[in-house]
Amino acid sequence: MDSTEPLFDLPAPTPWDAVQLKALATLREAPLELVSPDWAQALSAQDPALRRLGAMLNAEYDAGTRFLPLPTQVLRALGTPLAEVKVLIVGQDPYPTPGHSVGLAFSVDKTTRPLPRSLNNIYKELHTDLGIPPAAHGDLGAWSRQGVLLLNRVLTVAPGQAGSHRRRGWEEVTDAVITTLAARAQPLVSVLWGNDAQRLAPMLEGTAVIESAHPSPLSASRGFFGSRPFSRVNDLLSAQGATPVDWKLPP
Score class of each variant (00 low, 15 high):
residue 2 D to V: 02
residue 3 S to E: 15
residue 5 E to R: 04
residue 6 P to T: 03
residue 7 L to T: 05
residue 7 L to C: 15
residue 9 D to R: 05
residue 9 D to K: 06
residue 12 A to W: 10
residue 13 P to K: 01
residue 13 P to D: 12
residue 13 P to R: 01
residue 13 P to H: 03
residue 13 P to A: 07
residue 14 T to R: 09
residue 15 P to M: 08
residue 19 V to L: 14
residue 23 A to Y: 07
residue 23 A to N: 10
residue 28 R to H: 11
residue 29 E to L: 08
residue 29 E to Y: 04
residue 34 L to E: 13
residue 38 D to C: 10
residue 39 W to A: 03
residue 40 A to M: 11
residue 47 D to E: 14
residue 50 L to W: 09
residue 53 L to A: 08
residue 53 L to N: 09
residue 56 M to Q: 14
residue 56 M to T: 11
residue 62 D to P: 06
residue 63 A to W: 11
residue 66 R to H: 09
residue 67 F to P: 05
residue 69 P to F: 05
residue 69 P to Y: 04
residue 70 L to T: 00
residue 71 P to K: 00
residue 74 V to F: 15
residue 80 T to E: 13
residue 80 T to G: 07
residue 81 P to V: 04
residue 84 E to I: 06
residue 85 V to K: 04
residue 86 K to C: 15
residue 86 K to G: 09
residue 88 L to D: 11
residue 94 P to H: 06
residue 97 T to L: 13
residue 99 G to P: 07
residue 102 V to T: 08
residue 107 S to I: 08
residue 107 S to E: 14
residue 110 K to Y: 12
residue 112 T to K: 09
residue 116 P to A: 10
residue 120 N to L: 14
residue 120 N to P: 05
residue 121 N to T: 01
residue 122 I to K: 02
residue 124 K to Q: 13
residue 128 T to N: 12
residue 130 L to H: 03
residue 133 P to E: 15
residue 133 P to C: 14
residue 136 A to G: 14
residue 141 G to I: 09
residue 141 G to P: 09
residue 145 R to F: 10
residue 146 Q to P: 12
residue 147 G to Y: 09
residue 147 G to I: 08
residue 148 V to P: 10
residue 149 L to V: 00
residue 149 L to N: 04
residue 150 L to S: 03
residue 150 L to C: 07
residue 151 L to P: 00
residue 156 T to H: 14
residue 157 V to F: 11
residue 159 P to I: 03
residue 165 H to M: 15
residue 165 H to F: 06
residue 176 A to H: 00
residue 182 A to K: 00
residue 183 A to C: 10
residue 188 L to A: 01
residue 189 V to S: 13
residue 190 S to R: 02
residue 192 L to A: 01
residue 193 W to Q: 05
residue 194 G to I: 01
residue 195 N to V: 00
residue 197 A to D: 07
residue 203 M to R: 00
residue 207 T to R: 15
residue 209 V to T: 04
residue 209 V to L: 11
residue 211 E to L: 11
residue 211 E to P: 01
residue 213 A to L: 06
residue 215 P to F: 04
residue 216 S to Y: 05
residue 216 S to R: 02
residue 217 P to S: 10
residue 220 A to G: 02
residue 221 S to G: 15
residue 221 S to M: 12
residue 221 S to N: 15
residue 224 F to T: 01
residue 224 F to M: 07
residue 224 F to P: 05
residue 226 G to I: 02
residue 226 G to S: 03
residue 229 P to V: 02
residue 230 F to Q: 02
residue 230 F to S: 03
residue 232 R to M: 12
residue 234 N to C: 07
residue 237 L to K: 00
residue 238 S to W: 13
residue 242 A to W: 09
residue 242 A to D: 15
residue 245 V to L: 11
residue 246 D to Q: 08
residue 251 P to Q: 09
